[in-house]
Amino acid sequence: MKLKQISVFLENKEGKLKNAIEILSENEINIRALSIADTSQFGILRLIVNDYSKAKNALEKSNYVVKITEVIAVKVQDKPGGLNQMLTTLYNNKINVEYIYAFVDCTDGQAIVVVKTENIEKGINVLESENIKVLDAEEVIK
């Protein structure tokens, strides 16, 4: 199951991140996971939120450039080696990872890993064939 992530272009300047987050807050959008990739000039803010199209519209209204990207969400054990098993599976099947970030879900002591592979379909197939649970949108944004 593919998951929709929103990517936001940010200038690497004071207040730019806060401003984007503020817009989401004002529109009552809940952020489930977040990561920032940055260079000295700009950054890409990547978010998993409860309502991606609402978030995209709100940000675009305030002149942000937003893209919807498909990613994979996987549940792994929150213990040593938890992530390694998944990465090994991808590696053995020659699936390139473009980026990855994770958050811990306190309710069941498991970690949710968001991963962007070069080929999303293939990534999902490989993981599922090794019995690694790929989450659907509802399970992530609940």
């Binding site: 700009f42 893209k67 990207t69």
Partner: peptide
């Protein structure tokens, strides 16, 4: 100014 068609989810594309 960045536009929708210029923006990519990946740093290396923007660079």
């Amino acid at each position: 100014e960045v536009s929708e068609s210029l923006f990519s989810d990946e740093i290396k594309h923007i660079e």
